[in-house]
């Protein structure tokens, strides 16, 4: 039969998911033995033409990380979908949009203006912006088109499996790779390499069912050890985040950020978290409630930190946005 052929690709991402694969550590040689890694731009010398030359479904499994930010990302997503039997959205960016997805709170114009003109460290007296096509003495240069909206992988192609996390933890990644190698993946469309409950299920901090009388940033509080961080006023997304990471962050005294995305019963992570927090604000006085809520200066950025493109909100309406 031959060894399974595996591909890894990175779209709009930070590179952390590539490291996450490497993080399987001494299981990496096991992977290299058991599978043929045939396309991995981060770690191998490959060209897009190599991919284009493959037959359809030539690749057995592709782990695709990163969001769809520009035309290159989308083209590669389409190509890898065609050439792969199984396409896995690996990591939060591909799964729900993650940090790149927060760009959906601004417009394309805002991004270009900030990056190339108004950022304090930029020297661009001619206000030159990148173009898709540029004439140079050497010929015409083509750059990928920057999209106004960040998409998740499944918003541009059919996705077979999702592995959540920013990044997915090493043990869960290995479980997924093993399942791929053993052929024991569950039915298509599932989230794999994660739990089916919320982070609280894996967290050992004690809950006392108290309300929230104020929000405080983690570095401004010496938290009571072994006590639920959310109840102490530190925003912890664990109540509305899928389990699987082993509650890593709370176990070292940092609140969960929500990177494993929406739990199984939820189609909009941010909305559910807002609703839950609203239920336990410890005040019925409007002025007092306002004061408590002022402890969260950017609700959209906080509650939708990892899931904005995948949520009902999807993006902020700005002039000139194209769906």
């Amino acid at each position: 039969m031959g060894k399974p052929k595996v591909a890894f690709y990175w779209a709009a991402s930070c590179g952390g998911c590539e490291i996450a694969v490497l993080d399987i550590g001494d299981r990496l040689p096991v992977l290299a033995e058991a599978a043929d890694i045939i396309f991995w731009p981060c770690a191998m010398d490959v060209k897009y033409d190599d991919l284009r030359a493959m037959e359809d479904d030539f690749i057995d499994v592709c782990l695709f990380n990163g969001a769809i930010r520009n035309s290159e990302n989308e083209e590669m997503a389409g190509l890898l979908r065609k050439k792969s039997k199984i396409l896995v959205a690996y990591g939060s960016c591909a799964h729900e949009g993650c940090i790149p997805g927060l760009a959906n709170l601004v417009s394309e114009e805002d991004i270009l203006d900030r990056s190339y003109i108004s950022a304090p460290s930029v020297e661009n007296p001619g206000n030159v912006l990148p173009e898709v096509k540029t004439e140079t003495p050497e010929g015409e240069l083509e750059l990928p088109e920057l999209y106004d909206t960040v998409y998740t992988l499944d918003q541009v192609v059919d996705v077979d499996y999702y592995v959540p996390g920013c990044p997915p933890v090493a043990d869960r990644t290995w479980e997924v790779l093993e399942a791929i190698l053993d052929g024991t993946l569950p039915g298509k469309g599932n989230v794999v390499g994660a739990g089916s409950k919320i982070v609280c299920d894996e967290c050992s901090l004690e809950k006392k069912e108290t309300g929230i009388s104020g929000f405080v940033r983690p570095h401004l509080l010496e938290p009571e050890p072994d006590r639920c961080l959310l109840e102490q006023g530190v925003y912890c997304a664990g109540i509305g985040t899928r389990s699987g990471c082993g509650a890593l962050c709370p176990s070292v005294g940092m609140p969960c950020r929500g990177c494993y995305g929406a739990p199984p019963g939820v189609f909009d992570q941010g909305a559910k978290i807002v609703s839950a927090l609203g239920s336990i604000i410890d005040s019925t006085d409007p002025d007092e409630t306002d004061a408590i809520m002022s402890g969260i200066p950017c609700p959209a950025g906080l509650f939708y930190r990892f899931s904005l493109p995948h949520s009902i909100l999807r993006r902020k309406i700005t002039d000139g946005y194209e769906d």
């Binding site: 089916s196 609280c200 809950k207 309300g211 109540i239 389990s243 336990i280």
Partner: peptide, 23 residues
């Protein structure tokens, strides 16, 4: 309550006005 989904965060216990929920 769906037992397969509940992760025991306990937020729902205190919001019930009828004392209908327990952990």
């Amino acid at each position: 309550v769906d037992e397969d989904l509940c992760g025991g965060c306990r937020i729902c216990i205190s919001v019930c006005p009828y004392d209908a929920r327990k952990f």
